[in-house]
């Protein structure tokens, strides 16, 4: 592991800390990856990238452990989405969202079709797409999404309402202005 630390330009102590964090947060990160990606190979891939993001960013991270967890949560999600983007496997997320909806009958129920979710998701900008996924897939509240994404609740509300409006337009429930 020494050469890795040297390669990173950091001291071995920092790498050891990152390794300890990886072990601690491993269940959360792996569950997260598995939920989104649904493929062990892709999960390994995303875990690898997330770990290196942790190694690189841990030294510069300023905050308590709660914020660290939120940051890791977001980093893992971002890498999963990158992998999906690369693999062109957005259908996996849509599947996950639909399963979630079937299990809990949550507020995603207003979208009648899985196709709507998929089509609208694909057209969103990356940040908004991420926020929508937190809302649809994880059932997170706006406050939590804002905490994880490091933004304001107002911004999250805007993203979500914009998504809902686009979905309705797409479904023909509202006229395009």
């Amino acid at each position: 592991m020494k050469w890795i630390a040297r390669w990173l330009g950091e001291d071995r102590g920092q790498y050891a800390e990152a390794e300890a964090l990886y072990r601690r947060y491993h269940p959360m990160m792996r569950r997260r990856c598995r939920r989104i990606l649904r493929d062990e190979v892709l999960v390994d891939d995303a875990m690898q990238e997330s770990f290196w993001a942790l190694c690189r960013g841990y030294g510069r991270f300023q905050g308590n452990e709660g914020q660290l967890m939120a940051w890791l949560y977001r980093v893992t999600t971002s890498h999963c989405l990158k992998v999906l983007e690369r693999e062109r496997r957005w259908d996996r997320v849509v599947e996950a969202v639909c399963e979630e909806r079937a299990m809990f009958g949550s507020d995603v129920g207003e979208f009648e079709s899985d196709v709507v979710v998929r089509e609208v998701l694909l057209k969103l900008p990356p940040l908004q797409r991420e926020a929508v996924l937190y809302w649809l897939l994880d059932g997170m509240a706006q406050e939590e999404i804002a905490e994880v994404m490091g933004t304001t609740r107002h911004q999250v509300r805007q993203w979500l309402s914009s998504f809902a409006q686009k979905a309705k337009i797409w479904m023909g429930l509202e006229e395009r202005v």
Binding site: P27, M28, R31, M69, Y73, G139, M140, A141, E144
Partner: peptide, 25 residues
Amino acid sequence: PDVRRGREQGGHGRLSEYQMSRYML
């Protein structure tokens, strides 16, 4: 928040993975 929202929706709320992870950690 999820718990609160769940109650508002008639007791069929769900916990977000984020909240459960925070609890576990």
